[in-house]
Structure formats: C-alpha cells, structure tokens
C-alpha cells in the first residue's frame, strides 16, 4: 500500500496521546490505591493539555486523507459494521473526557463523589476511568480498521491490535517519564520502569509480526486473479492510461533499499535507542536525555507506520505485474 502521511501522523499522534493519558491516569490510580506519592497537579494539567493537543493534531492530520472533510460527521453513522466509523465516534468521545478530566485540574475542582471503605472516590477518578476505557478501545478501533481488510494478509492478524496498543503505550509512557522528570515527580522512576517494560513488550510483538509477515504465503496469485490455470503470466498492457489509481495507491513506490533501511531505522529508533536513553535519563536524572528519547522514538514510530503500510501487499497488485 502507499503510505499516506495523513494516516501515519493520525495513528502515531493519537497513539502517543492515548498512551500519555493512560500513563497519567495510572499515576492517579496509584496514589488513589494507597501509594503515598503522586504527580504534582501542574504536571497533570500540562499532561492533560498535551494529550488534548496530540489528539487534536491527529484529527487535523486525518482530514487531509478525506476528499470531503466537511462531510466527516457522516462517518459516525455506520458503527454497526465499520471499525472506521467506531473510531470516528470513540476519538472525539475520548477528547471530550480528557478535556473534562483536565478541566478538573485547571479549575482545581475535584469534589469527592463518595467514600468507599475509607477510599475517597473523586470526580476525576471516575471521569478518568471512562476516558481510560475510551483510550484502550480507541487502540482496538484504529487497529481493527486494518485487521478488518481480510484480503491484506499482512494486516489481518491479532498482532496488529497488540502492536498498536503496545507501541502507543510505549511511546506514551516514555513521554510521561520525560514529563515526570521535568516536574520532578516522585513517580518518575515508576514511569521509567513501566516505559522500559512497554518498549520491550512492543519490540517483542512488532518483531514477531515482522517474522510472521516475512513467512506469509500469498493466498492469491495472478492465476486466481485472472482465472487461468497456467501460472506463467506476463503483463503486456495495463490499460489505456499511463498510470492510474491502481498503480499509485497500492504500491509504496520506494526502492528496496529504502524499504529495508526504514525497517532497520524503525527497529533502532523506536525500541533500541529509547530503551537505553530512558535508562540513562532515569539513572542520570536528566530530563534532556528523556526528551531526546521521546523525539527519537516518535521519529521511529513514523518510520514504523510507513513500513506498516508499505509492507502490506494488496491483492489487486496481481493485476499489475510491472
């Protein structure tokens, strides 16, 4: 498939945003559950604002993928069958819940709703819980858009969902570690440890899916595409046009070298470098190193998403043999 930059930015930006929110909310749950450390309120406020900005930027990027963005609201109607429609519903719902959640910190207004067994249940805890459900479900929706296309074998696997979830969590928790370090939160170490765990888990599942995709035997061939028994097929003409949507949309149009280097780059930049940078930043108590980890990892994620689209082989390519 041709990697579309609008979709690359959409999926990576909202992935980081959801991950950052889940990291911040984990901090809140941690202090709620009896941990005597918590994030400073300014950090929660800045963090919520950052989540909001990342999500809105993602939505903004996505409009470039549409021919008619002014009708995008219509995309919320087919939630019964379409995962894209479900994403279109859950994404703004998550943004609204994050805005409410962040609003509590902005106006310093977080009333106690009830007391359960000595634990104070505050408004932000309940709002955050709903937002956390939306964040997790949004990962599923985003990934299922690709899993649902059964004829693209590289995507139609539960690994796609696991990758979107773990890559989002890894990048979100790395950003949370940098943020916690900047605000000198007592939870910085916890974030660093969780971030490393998610980076390792994401590296494992992404590597596993690379191995899986390398071993795929195509179910379809030019033979079944044309319905000829003879498998020796050579294309003479692609139609009356010099190019078409078919020749531009379904190939990545990059050289094999670029393709392989992108794979190498994303493995290093998304997993290996951030892994060490988070450890160094944590040990050296350096916000700068952690910010470097965030930026390098995001570059890696862009490359990862490019590769995700580029490696998908669409069966219509059987009609275009070069």
């Amino acid at each position: 498939m041709k990697p579309a930059f609008s979709v690359i930015f959409l999926t990576t930006l909202i992935g980081v945003g959801q991950g950052l929110f889940l990291a911040l909310y984990t901090g809140e749950v941690f202090s709620f559950a009896g941990g005597n450390q918590s994030n400073p309120p300014q950090m929660m406020l800045v963090g919520a604002l950052l989540v909001f900005v990342l999500m809105v930027l993602g939505v903004f990027a996505s409009t470039f993928h549409l021919g008619r963005p002014e009708r995008a609201w219509r995309a919320a109607t087919q939630w019964r069958t379409s995962w894209l429609s479900r994403e279109v519903i859950v994404l703004p719902a998550f943004i609204v819940m994050v805005a409410l959640w962040g609003g509590g910190f902005l106006f310093d207004n977080n009333p106690i709703l009830s007391v359960l067994g000595g634990l104070e249940i505050r408004l932000s805890f309940v709002v955050g819980l709903i937002a956390a459900f939306f964040a997790l479900f949004l990962y599923v929706c985003t990934a299922m858009i690709y899993v649902a296309i059964k004829c693209i074998q590289e995507w139609a696997s539960p690994l796609t969902v696991i990758n979107y979830l773990l890559l989002g969590l890894a990048s979100g928790f790395t950003l949370a570690t940098a943020l916690a370090s900047y605000f000198q939160s007592l939870l910085t170490v916890d974030y660093a440890v969780l971030s490393i765990i998610f980076i390792v888990a994401a590296a494992g599942s992404r590597f596993f899916s690379l191995c899986r995709n390398a071993q795929i035997k195509p179910k379809l061939s030019a033979g079944t595409a044309l319905g000829t028994r003879h498998l020796q097929i050579r294309q003479i003409s692609q139609g009356v046009r010099r190019g078409s949507f078919n020749t531009s949309e379904f190939f990545h149009h990059a050289s094999q070298n670029f393709f392989l280097w992108t794979k190498f780059f994303f493995l290093i930049a998304t997993f290996v470098l951030p892994f060490f940078l988070v450890i160094f930043g944590w040990i050296g108590d350096s916000t700068l190193i952690l910010i470097a980890a965030v930026l390098i990892q995001y570059m890696g994620l862009l490359a990862e998403r490019w590769f995700f689209f580029a490696e998908a082989n669409h069966p219509q390519n059987n009609y275009y043999q070069g």
Binding site: M1, H65, L66, G67, R68, P69, R71, A72, R74, A75, S82, L84, I145, A148, I149, C151, I152, L220, S244, F245, N246, E249, F250, H314, P315, Q316, Y319
Partner: peptide, 18 residues
C-alpha cells in the same frame, strides 16, 4: 454521502474503485 476516505478501495481485492 461519500467522504472519499478510500477505505472501500482498500477493502476491494479487485481494485475496481477510483
């Protein structure tokens, strides 16, 4: 109603949508 998101063209194995 169409917003030209191209999702249908990805889902079609035959490449017959433009």
């Amino acid at each position: 109603k169409c917003i030209a998101c191209s999702y249908c063209s990805w889902a079609c194995p035959y490449g017959v949508r433009e």
